[in-house]
């Protein structure tokens, strides 16, 4: 903790010195154009090292370090072909872990079609193309489990009344959404800590929510994120 604070403080000290010198340059020269675009050097070639579309995709579904590195330098056009099958294998491996813990045969506990109606190949193919969908003319929600505009009793099975996958707000619980899509089955609550025998204890693991909510403070004006802590 102290080390963290020390590094943090040091970085600001350097930053302050830097900004000060920059401002001094302006003052001494008396020319506010000393740092304009025309005098700044931007030449050179830049090679891609990291990629991100949706949160958590590379983290959760890439099977190993080599795949994680490869995903970061793969074009979106090639991602489904390169990663969908290994993502699907990893999705099944997650289910095998809980099959074992539950004392069941791993062959009997598999991914189940989710609230989007996606089977495993469809879901992993969709997620493998790691881009964020952003609707310019609709309310933003990464997904909003619990929305049921037509009151048909389904949590969010697409039947024409949903707005979702339209971007990502700072408040959106993207981890819970991801967990629901991966482990929730077609009703979104397949593994949610159910007490199946009524003895007051959970008999199924809780995999559809990590239990935490937003802790950072959010501003209602640009840039929306609050000052560092």
């Amino acid at each position: 903790m102290k080390l963290s604070n020390l590094i943090y403080a040091s970085s600001y000290f350097v930053a302050i010195l830097f900004f000060t010198s920059c401002n001094n340059d302006d003052d001494f020269s008396g020319d506010t154009d000393t740092m304009t675009d025309t005098e700044v050097e931007f030449s050179g070639t830049y090679a891609q090292v990291d990629h991100m579309g949706r949160p958590g995709i590379n983290t959760v579904l890439s099977a190993d370090d080599e795949t994680k590195d490869s995903q970061n330098t793969t074009l979106p056009t090639d991602m489904a072909a390169n990663f969908a099958s290994s993502f699907e294998a990893r999705l099944e491996a997650y289910h095998d872990v809980y099959a074992t813990l539950l004392g069941a045969d791993p062959d009997d506990v598999n991914y189940e079609t989710n609230i989007l109606g996606f089977d495993a190949p469809t879901l992993t193919g969709y997620l493998a193309a790691d881009v964020l969908d952003i609707a310019p003319n609709l309310p933003t929600t990464y997904f909003n489990p619990g929305t049921d505009a037509d009151g048909d009793g389904r949590i969010l099975v697409p039947d024409g009344d949903e707005v979702g996958l339209t971007g990502r707000t700072l408040q959106d619980d993207v981890i819970d959404v991801s967990l629901i899509l991966l482990f929730g089955g077609e009703e979104g609550d397949r593994f949610s800590g159910q007490d199946t025998d009524g003895d007051g204890e959970s008999d199924l693991p809780r995999l559809t929510s990590d239990g935490v909510a937003l802790t950072a403070s959010i501003s209602d004006s640009f840039p929306y994120l609050s000052s560092p802590e």
Binding site: V49, L116, L132, P136, E162
Partner: peptide, 26 residues
């Protein structure tokens, strides 16, 4: 300034498909 999308999301809504990269000077 970004343009008008014709791409669709999984629910059939019009969306931009966007991603971030970082790129290191060679």
């Amino acid at each position: 300034m970004l343009g008008t999308p014709t791409a669709k999301n999984a629910l059939g809504l019009d969306v931009y498909k966007a991603w971030i990269t970082t790129n290191r000077k060679q």
